[in-house]
Design a protein around this nucleic acid. Structure first.
Length: 250
DNA sequence: AAGGGTTGCAACCGCCAGCGT
DNA sequence: GACGCTGGCGGTTGCAACCCT
């Protein structure tokens, strides 16, 4: 036998969260932390599925969420990361503390896709659309000649230069030789050895994010600041209550 | 002012790797 | 080793807000 199911979906509330539900979830997590999402709604007194609670917390309630308008630098970085990683939103989101994968995915689908299309670039391949539809016969040298002479390619090159300089600046600020864009090859990037979620929470800053210099945005993923939330994360959580209460709620 | 279309985003769905039993 | 749950992920949907005619 395995574990018990996340939820039976019978009698559970769905749809938009109310302020009261938000408060319950927020208070419970801030007071008790998270060990098992299946138990969270029961212990917090919510008629929601654990999965729904997790989503609400990650995408909306987390104290470290940045929110607010996207900067040009952030958008450029998303485009660059997407060209490297594809639709792996969680990987992309890892480079944007305070932003969620859902938020990035939404922004990509509603804004950046259109922006790329306006520039004549295919959002999937990041290559000029004309190449695929009108000049599909172009291959090899011909393609390289075409793609390197167009205005669109110039824009892409400018974008890459911007991102490369950002990479350099990030390395400088970190005082390390590893790039923030190389998380895949840099397993020490996370400061927690535990769950990824806590790595995300612990690697971010909570305060005055909106007041930062816009040119700085998108690069703060390499900065570890100490703050109250960080302290909460690092503090020993009263997990024992789960082991003692858990069975009573099953 | 009204209604139809578009946009933006929160939330849900279904899949799957990892892991506990 | 098999089974099946959990948590995480990407894709999709639903709906409120906004815009346009």
């Amino acid at each position: 036998m395995g574990r018990q199911p996340c939820c039976d979906k019978v009698g559970l509330k769905r749809g938009p969260w109310t302020i009261e539900e938000d408060n319950k979830l927020m208070n419970f997590i801030l007071n008790n932390g998270i060990q098992c999402w299946r138990l969270v709604p029961k212990l917090a007194g919510l008629m929601r599925c654990g999965k729904s609670c997790r989503l609400r917390w990650i995408n909306y309630l987390r104290p470290d969420l940045k929110r607010g308008a996207w900067t040009e630098a952030e958008e450029d970085m998303i485009i660059e990361l997407h060209s490297r990683l594809g639709n792996r939103w969680s990987k992309i989101a890892a480079h944007f503390p305070g932003r969620t994968d859902n938020e990035i995915k939404n922004h990509w689908n509603t804004k950046i896709k259109k922006k790329l299309k306006l520039l004549g670039l295919d959002p999937l391949t990041h290559k000029p659309i004309i190449d695929q539809h009108e000049n599909s016969a172009l291959k090899g040298e011909e393609y390289r000649e075409y793609s390197s002479s167009g205005e669109q390619e110039m824009m892409k090159l400018e974008l890459e230069e911007t991102l490369q300089s950002k990479d350099f600046e990030m390395q400088q600020s970190k005082g390390t030789s590893s790039s923030c864009l190389d998380e895949e090859t840099n397993p020490t990037a996370g400061i927690f050895s535990g769950r990824k979620e806590y790595q995300e929470m612990g690697s971010v800053q909570m305060q005055n994010v909106e007041n930062l210099d816009p040119s700085y945005m998108g690069m703060n993923d390499c900065i570890q600041l100490e703050d109250p939330f960080q302290n909460w994360i690092n503090s020993p959580l009263p997990w024992d209550i789960f082991s003692t209460l858990g069975d009573n709620f099953l």
